[in-house]
């Protein structure tokens, strides 16, 4: 975490306040107003806005264009990049392009397999994986060098992030191990997979703290509010790498249908309160899937509003 960039997100994390990030999904059309609208909905409640990169392998407006749009609106954007669709030439090119517009946050991901998306017959790339993308951004920023060896003067000032999933197999220790590898590669902040299984997450954080990794990387805990019991069940059964315990299903399903959204929001707020007490948690990443209008409410009720104004 030593390298300081102009990133406002980094400034917030380094200040010791809980950071808050959220994300917006670009539209599946050339309608630029969508991102503008979503950005405006959440801008006062977050320190940085992630723009997803063709999430779940469904083709959408590119993350880079949306990040530039947010930047031009005066907002702090975080460029999500998956290695599925672009080789190292295209990835580095987009990083340079983002930096040329003053975008200072990047989230390095491998990406879902295209099997899930709207183009399952396409070729994939996977020239690099997420960890190699982290290495690449770090090299570009700290050494002013491309993977091919070309050296350049104006370096991309990127605060480097990645994802972690404490809930994927085979065990928490291996997941900590993998995160240690991301730290060794140069990652500075982590946005986790949505957390529903608190016990597993706490076990994960304990191992992180035991190894001192929590001081080398800022963990932003992933929060996704459940809209209804159908969504909870879908995430439990169908979404790879997400662990939704049965008591969550029972809780959301235990209230009348019209009250389930409210219960989902309350659950998210309680999760934030509980996670604030977990050592090593430095902030929250709120992924309100196609529910951006509720981010403000979650942030306010979670005691994270107003956002501190840093000089």
């Amino acid at each position: 975490m030593s390298v300081t960039t102009p990133s406002k997100l980094q400034k917030m994390i380094d200040s010791g306040n809980f950071a808050v990030t959220s994300e917006v999904g670009p539209p599946r059309s050339a309608d630029g107003a969508v991102i503008e609208h979503k950005g405006n909905l959440i801008k006062d409640y977050v320190d940085a806005i992630n723009v997803t990169d063709n999430q779940t392998s469904v083709c959408r407006v590119c993350s880079l264009a949306c990040c530039i749009r947010l930047k031009l609106m005066g907002l702090e954007a975080c460029l999500q990049m998956v290695t599925r669709d672009r080789n190292r030439i295209a990835l580095q090119s987009d990083i340079l392009g983002a930096a040329s517009f003053g975008i200072n946050n990047i989230l390095c991901l491998t990406g879902d397999h295209q099997h899930f998306g709207d183009h399952p017959k396409c070729a994939n790339v996977f020239d690099l994986d997420s960890i190699q993308l982290i290495q690449t951004v770090k090299m570009m920023r700290d050494e002013g060098k491309l993977l091919g060896g070309h050296e350049f003067a104006v370096r991309p000032q990127m605060y480097i992030g990645a994802a972690a999933n404490p809930f994927a197999g085979p065990n928490v220790a291996m997941r900590v191990s993998r995160l240690a590898k991301k730290v060794a590669a140069g990652v500075q902040f982590i946005q986790t997979q949505c957390i529903y299984n608190m016990d597993t997450f706490k076990e994960f954080m304990k191992l992180m703290v035991d190894r001192g990794l929590h001081e080398k990387v800022a963990i932003l805990a992933g929060i996704t509010p459940m809209k209804n019991v159908g969504m909870a069940k879908y995430m439990q059964k169908r979404v790879p790498g997400i662990d939704v315990p049965d008591d969550i299903i029972r809780r959301i399903g235990g209230v009348p249908k019209e009250k389930q959204a409210e219960e989902g929001l309350t659950l998210a707020v309680e999760q934030i309160q509980e996670l604030k007490e977990v050592e090593g948690v430095r902030g929250f990443h709120i992924m309100a899937i196609e529910w951006e209008e509720k981010v403000g409410e979650i942030v306010e009720r979670g005691g994270l509003f107003p956002r501190p104004q840093l000089a």
Binding site: F116, F126, D129, S130, I131, Q132, A163, A168, R178, G241
Partner: peptide
Amino acid sequence: CSKRMLNGPCGGSDAGKCEINKDIPC
């Protein structure tokens, strides 16, 4: 690895299986 990752596994592996197919070991 379905994503030919050199630094895996990704976050999609579930109970030792690949995210794209439960019959494929991670």
